[in-house]
Design a protein around this nucleic acid. Sequence first.
DNA 1: ACGTTTTGTGAAACACGGCTAACTTTTAGG
DNA 2: CCTAAAAGTTAGCCGTGTTTCACAAAACGT
Lengths: 129, 129
Amino acid sequence: MALRESGEDYLESIYVLSERQGIVRSIDVAEYLGVTKASVSKAMTTLESNGYVEMGKRDVHLTERGLEVARQMWERHCFFVGLLEDAGVSAEVASQEGCHMEHCLSEESFEKLRAMLGRDGASAPIMTD
Amino acid sequence: MALRESGEDYLESIYVLSERQGIVRSIDVAEYLGVTKASVSKAMTTLESNGYVEMGKRDVHLTERGLEVARQMWERHCFFVGLLEDAGVSAEVASQEGCHMEHCLSEESFEKLRAMLGRDGASAPIMTD
DNA sequence: ACGTTTTGTGAAACACGGCTAACTTTTAGG
DNA sequence: CCTAAAAGTTAGCCGTGTTTCACAAAACGT
């Protein structure tokens, strides 16, 4: 089953939170994304059954497969947010809108775009945002 | 009621088709977007009740309000498709993916991005694609 | 003018992704 | 320990936007 935009968002947030705090619980994801814990629970179930995450007793973590997607999403997130900020968009708006742009492109197209725009591949350090 | 991504797509396609062929029928929109005519029928009903389109006996056309949105979407479509093509993405893929990017940004952010990237505002001539 | 084909509509169903509410389970303080 | 708070799950609902299927209405060829 193909990953949807919302699934990618969940994976990305698990990635960011795990870098930030190590162990990630559903409630952390819920707060980060601004959804209810019920929504997270549902999403985790389908992400787990598709092999993107594994749920322990009190944590959730990415599988290899999930990590790959998550890193890619985070990379794109940083790219688009940086691009918009450079264009003069406020950090807050750039972050919101970048969140959507990151799901629009295939990997191939994204790489081509990044190559053309000459922004290097460095992702922003993960911090509270 | 705010316009959703799909509503914007419908308006844009009516705009493109009307430039191309004058009169636009539901079936044309359905074929253009690759959805069923039932979907178009339903979408037109809500777009009409929100003042974006008017339905005649055998055609559908944009109101002032709808035209404004449609032109804006088309402008963005051309911008993103052009950008991707310049990056080396095939016309077909660029068109597909540009279709999604065009809905991600606020008007303000889009203008800033366009200004920074220095692509002029000329939209591509409307042709079969 | 008639019948066929094309076009449009309406009803019912589905997938998705969110929500609330109620419940269970786990954690942690006293 | 034991209870209260926090975290997680489950069930059911909603809105959006599709679909299919059946039908209505219009257009068109002969």
